[in-house]
Amino acid sequence: MSEDKNTLPETARGGPIARFMALPTDSVAKTLFVAVTLCLVASMIVSAAAVALRPTQEINALKDKQINILQVAGIYDPEKDVLDSFAAFEPHVLELSTGAFTQEFDAASFDDRAAADDPATSIALEDDPAGIVRQGKYVTVYLLRDDAGEIDKLIMPLHGYGLWSTLYGFIALEENGNDIFGLQFYDHAETPGLGAEVDNPRWKALWNGKRLSDEDGTLQISVTKAAPAAGKDYHIDALAGATLTTNGVHNLVRFWMGEAGYGPFLDTLKAGDVQ
Rank of each mutant, 00 (worst) to 15 (best):
Q103D: 15
L212M: 15
F110H: 05
G209A: 08
G231Q: 07
G14E: 08
G261I: 06
P78K: 13
Y262F: 14
E215Q: 14
L269C: 08
N176T: 03
W164L: 07
V198G: 07
Y76M: 13
A115H: 04
S122W: 01
I75E: 09
S222R: 12
G193K: 03
F33D: 00
T102R: 04
D117K: 07
S109Y: 01
F185Y: 13
G261V: 06
H159V: 03
A227F: 04
W203Y: 08
T98H: 02
L62I: 01
L144A: 07
I221R: 06
A120L: 03
A124R: 02
T102V: 13
F33I: 00
T98S: 15
P24F: 04
G136V: 01
N247K: 14
G99F: 03
A240M: 11
L206G: 04
A108V: 03
D152L: 13
E95H: 09
L212K: 08
K5E: 09
L163H: 12
A48N: 13
E150W: 02
G99T: 01
A114I: 00
K30D: 01
P16V: 12
V249H: 08
L167D: 06
R54A: 12
P9Y: 13
G231M: 05
S122V: 01
V141P: 06
K63E: 09
I155P: 13
I132V: 13
I171D: 08
M156D: 04
A226Q: 13
L143K: 12
L83R: 12
R13N: 05
E104V: 02
W207N: 10
S2C: 00
D4K: 09
E3N: 03
K65P: 00
F33M: 06
A196Q: 11
F265G: 04
I221D: 09
A172K: 03
N176K: 06
E175R: 12
V93G: 05
F101D: 08
E104K: 14
A22L: 08
Q103M: 05
A52S: 10
R202F: 09
I123G: 00
L158S: 02
T11F: 15
P201D: 07
G263E: 04
D118A: 00
F185Q: 02
T102A: 04
D117C: 01
F170P: 08
A88N: 14
I59E: 14
N208W: 01
L194N: 03
N176Y: 02
A226W: 01
E10K: 10
E259V: 01
K232A: 14
T246A: 12
H250E: 07
R113E: 11
K270C: 07
E58R: 06
V133Q: 05
L144K: 10
A115K: 00
A88Q: 15
Q57H: 06
T191D: 05
L269Q: 08
K204C: 09
L206K: 13
I123L: 01
A227S: 15
